[in-house]
Design a protein around this nucleic acid. Structure first.
Lengths: 204, 204
DNA sequence: GTCTATAAATCGATAGAC
DNA sequence: GTCTATCGATTTATAGAC
């Protein structure tokens, strides 16, 4: 166990702050969480926050990056072992029920985006980020459709845009009406993979 | 021109406040607009606001009601004269380009919903409101599909949920990336009405 | 009913000690 | 790099005059 260098301790502090902020932002929301609360919960003070992040928005963006990375890796891990289109669909369904169904994620992404939409610098970064996410999803669809014979009813980019918008729209509504089922998202993907019958069970 | 009764003048004040708040909320956002700004712009003071609305949320809900009513009436007016599925699709496309394309509307609805999602009373009212909107859209789809022979690929409720989520998802993303086209929404409706080819022109 | 004045509480951000 | 202390700016909401 070698002692940590100064750079390493600071990176540890930064990582702890991000992780604490992630939990609070997801549970209470971005605006409702003050930097003092983040610092307290992480065992630091506001000074530590401001020596690691220029302002609250930078912390917010760092949290969004971490959360997105976690979700993408979860999806890839879930989907990787699938060897047929049915298995891909089942894997996606499991992932969607866990993460689109989780109210906090979409709410945080959307709250942050809406709150900062009038600050041009942040807005442009979020726009770039959105295109990256869409392209990532489009490539996943293209690779998987070629390998498994999915029948996309449009370009991969359009299907990706469609699925992403659907997920955001459902997630937003589930933030204030958790009874809304996400079946429509799963069903839509199911139809892409050969027009299978919609899933049977409905909550509402 | 008879003199206005006390009740009438108060209703006028209330209507003016709602209308002013609507403009400011749509342009600047719900959280970014203070009640003092609303009062000033309407030619009153904060006292007038608080004698007409219990708190900021009540004003927000009143504004949401007005905006939704306007959008619904615009859609019905646009769609009423249509006599074929092509005309219905064209009418909806015109409406969508004007209103889903308008960044302010979705942003306001979503910002308000996300901001108040932890206050159970408001949350329940928004959930009820969501179901009403979905049912309204479902009935419109059912009536129109029977009259014009649209081929819905699911129950009217599911198609309505799908379209609504798609509109919200696109509107949210357009709040910080206005270049995102809404084609995917129009195309999806087009496919419902007989699997027509996707619209040609793409912005991005 | 509306206005004036103010209360009360936060929060983001900064300066300087250590 | 982190902590203490504080500034400064807002905002919602209320109390009382008119």
């Amino acid at each position: 166990m070698a002692r940590l260098t100064r750079k390493e301790t600071q990176e540890l502090t930064r990582a702890r702050l991000i992780d604490t902020a992630k939990v609070l932002f997801l549970a209470e929301g971005y605006n409702a969480t003050s930097l003092g609360q983040v610092a307290d919960a992480a065992g630091y003070t506001k000074g530590a926050v401001y020596s690691n992040f220029a302002d609250k928005q930078e912390l917010g963006l760092a949290v969004l990056d971490v959360v997105l990375t976690e979700r993408v890796e979860a999806l890839l891990t879930e989907i990787a072992p699938a060897e047929s289109d049915e298995q891909v669909l089942a894997a996606f369904t499991r992932w969607a029920e866990q993460h689109i169904g989780d109210v906090g994620w979409t709410a945080l992404e959307v709250e942050f985006a809406i709150s900062t939409r009038h600050q041009e610098d942040v807005r442009l970064r979020l726009a770039e980020r959105r295109r990256g996410i869409t392209l990532l999803l489009a490539e996943l669809l293209r690779d998987r459709s070629e390998a498994l014979g999915l029948a996309l009813d449009g370009t991969p980019e359009d299907v990706a845009t469609h699925l992403l918008a659907l997920g955001i729209g459902l997630g937003v509504q589930r933030a204030f009406d958790p009874d809304l089922p996400i079946d429509v998202l799963v069903d839509h993907l199911a139809q892409l993979s050969g027009g299978g019958a919609p899933s049977g069970a409905r909550v509402s």
